[in-house]
């Protein structure tokens, strides 16, 4: 464990004061095993208390700290600085309006999630105990349930950038998670919602979402399966 000198450029924005975002440079020494979150904490606690960012769990499960580092969407807490070297460029996720510094407005992101009815819909009578679900049935949705709603995928999606009305990969992945759940009875209504120019059809299989996903979920694959399901359903 040794200390190394790093230089960090951070995109700062204070509403009411800055007309538009500006870069600020910080230079200091930090342990070579540090993560991006350690770097931000060091700046916030020791150099400039006015820096704002979101963080919570430190163990890549809460999804708070997705941001752009040297052009890549990452979770700050799980990303060691040595992945990028000693020159860091940290900015907020693209495609969202900035509230302050690295904090973006996620209200539209969660509003979109709500639009696809992101909950199990059961019409049949409930069993006394659990629904029986085979391991194969579980596996169909298993990986998609790992989504932590960090918004890294939606922020990486070129179809989302120009068109804020698009549902985006995260909400669509959630639709997949329920449409393909063997216990769910609501797939018709859900498929009807996403069968829209601004729904699943604005996904052009660019694969950026998959590359950005910190949980390595094969989002594009699942969205393609969702498209097939929509077509099957409308025939």
């Amino acid at each position: 464990m040794a200390k190394i000198d790093i230089s960090v450029k951070i995109l700062r924005y204070l509403p009411g004061k800055d007309e538009k975002p500006r870069w600020q440079l910080f230079q200091f020494a930090i342990e070579d095993e540090a993560t991006i979150l350690d770097v931000l904490n060091e700046i916030h606690w020791q150099h400039d208390g006015t820096l704002s960012y979101r963080r919570s769990c430190r163990s890549s499960i809460c999804g708070s700290c997705a941001m752009k580092v040297n052009g890549r969407n990452v979770l700050a807490c799980e990303t060691p600085i040595h992945r990028f070297g000693t020159k860091l460029k940290i900015e907020p996720l693209s495609g969202f309006s900035i509230i302050k510094d690295l904090v973006v407005d996620l209200e539209p992101f969660f509003a979109k999630l709500k639009r696809i009815k992101p909950y199990l819909i059961v019409d049949k009578p409930l069993p006394d105990k659990e629904f029986i679900q085979s391991t194969a049935e579980l596996q169909a949705i298993g990986e998609s349930t790992l989504c932590i709603l960090c918004a890294a995928c939606s922020a990486a999606c070129p179809s989302s950038w120009p068109n804020q009305d698009y549902l985006g990969p995260a909400a669509l992945l959630k639709a997949y998670r329920f449409v393909f759940d063997s216990r769910d009875d609501g797939s018709d209504e859900r498929l009807e919602i996403i069968n829209d120019k601004n729904g699943v059809w604005r996904c052009h299989t660019i694969f950026n979402c998959m590359e950005a996903c910190p949980k390595k979920i094969k989002i594009t694959d699942y969205l393609s399966r969702l498209k097939v399901k929509v077509v099957e359903n409308s025939i």
């Binding site: 979109k112 804020q164 009305d165 069968n195 601004n198 729904g199 699943v200 059809w201 604005r202």
Partner: peptide
């Protein structure tokens, strides 16, 4: 900005 449904399918 929220998801604006166009009611036009792209299927």
């Amino acid at each position: 900005k929220d998801f604006k449904q166009t009611s036009r399918s792209g299927s």
